[in-house]
Amino acid sequence: MSLRIRFGLLAATAVTAVAMFAGCVPMSASGEPTASTSPTEVVTVSPTPAPPVWTVAFGGECDTMLSPSQRSSVLGADTVDADVQRAEYRKQFNTVAFPDKTPGPEGTAGGLSCGWTEQGGNGRWWNVLALPAPLADPQTVAALAEPTCDWSYDTRVCRLGVTAGDLWFLATASPMGESEAAPVDTLRALIAAAAANASSAAAAVPATVTAQRWPIVACAELGDRMKLAEVLGEGYWSGYWEGSRQAEDDVFEYAGVQQFCQYGTGDGAAEGAHYIVSVTSQPGGAWMWSAQDDAVGEVTTVAGAQKALRILKGDPGRGDDVLATDGTNLIRVHVGSGQIAPDIAERAIAALAQE
């Protein structure tokens, strides 16, 4: 190959390379290359999911859990709602009560407890509790999978628990005779009817737990935090004056919505002082206090509470009651004799707010 031909091939190759290079570099109108810019990166931000909306099972309505026709079919036509019967009792005996209606503390966990009894309240009382299954105490669920009857004060209560769908149901019957068998067929029928109705009701969703919600504190530890020895004397007791712990106590504590503690005067109490103190804390339960409840007692001041009511009996021996809320939680204090409920309520609120 001649030198001229080789030179021509090299020149052609060089021109081709320049053309290829020029096609890859942005050029200005003057032919000068311009700075290259990367495509703008689009960042997609996923929306923060909204917290689940607190929803009480069956919409908080007992007639949705068990329709009047179902109730009549299972229990008989002469049964009435337990709330109605309790209201009749209060009217008959001229008594008042702090928030005592449906839904109760189980509502904080998305649950619903409904009761029915015979007209006049002299017969058997029936109750069905529905609770989101994940919040049901596993030990209680296992213990009540078969009908069980236990003493509660001076009567027997028969219970049966069944998980159906996303809910755990607890059906109860009382009072039961000492040798009377559990009414298994009726308990199962109540649960079956409620479970069938649950399929067409909105799913139960517990209220969101906030930092302000009180914890469940063991009663003995709570008494120490409250420094009850200053009031009840050294050696005060913690437990039950009468009766015993019930399955519902375990259920509510595990769900984190209620705890009942009772204390009594010890040997070191001042002479003549004898108290039986009941403290019922309901974490997240402030919602149960409605405007209608403001007239139940006299407004009083309790340290740590946004508002508080007191029912003070004229006779100190008849007791002293306080209902108080810090805006998130609810507490009820009953003193069986003596007039120290506000002091006990203050101590309890301070003790429960420690965590």
Rank of each mutant, 00 (worst) to 15 (best):
I5R: 15
I5Q: 12
L9T: 12
A11S: 13
A12R: 02
A14R: 07
A14K: 01
V18N: 01
M27K: 13
S28V: 03
P33Q: 06
V42P: 01
T44Y: 09
V53R: 12
T64F: 03
S67Y: 00
S67R: 01
P68T: 04
S69N: 09
S72T: 07
L75I: 00
V80T: 09
D81W: 02
V84D: 13
Y89I: 11
T95R: 11
T95A: 15
P99H: 08
G104N: 13
L112E: 04
C114Y: 01
G121Y: 00
N122T: 12
R124A: 06
L135F: 10
A136Q: 00
T140R: 08
A145Q: 14
D150K: 12
Y153N: 10
V157N: 06
G161A: 13
P175Q: 01
A182P: 04
A193D: 09
S199V: 13
S200W: 03
A201M: 03
A203N: 11
A204Y: 04
V205P: 00
R213L: 12
W214L: 02
A218W: 06
A218Q: 14
R225C: 05
L232A: 03
G235N: 04
W237H: 08
Y240Q: 10
S244H: 11
A247I: 13
F260T: 13
Q262A: 11
A273S: 13
I276F: 15
V277S: 04
V277E: 03
V279Y: 04
T280L: 14
Q282D: 08
P283V: 01
P283G: 02
G284K: 05
G285R: 02
G285K: 07
A286R: 04
W287R: 09
V299N: 10
T300P: 01
G304Y: 05
G304R: 07
Q306R: 12
A308Q: 01
I311P: 00
I311M: 12
L312N: 10
K313E: 14
G314D: 15
G314S: 15
D315W: 05
P316C: 05
D320N: 11
L323A: 11
G327Q: 08
G327N: 09
G327L: 06
T328W: 10
V335G: 00
A351E: 06
L352D: 07
A353S: 15
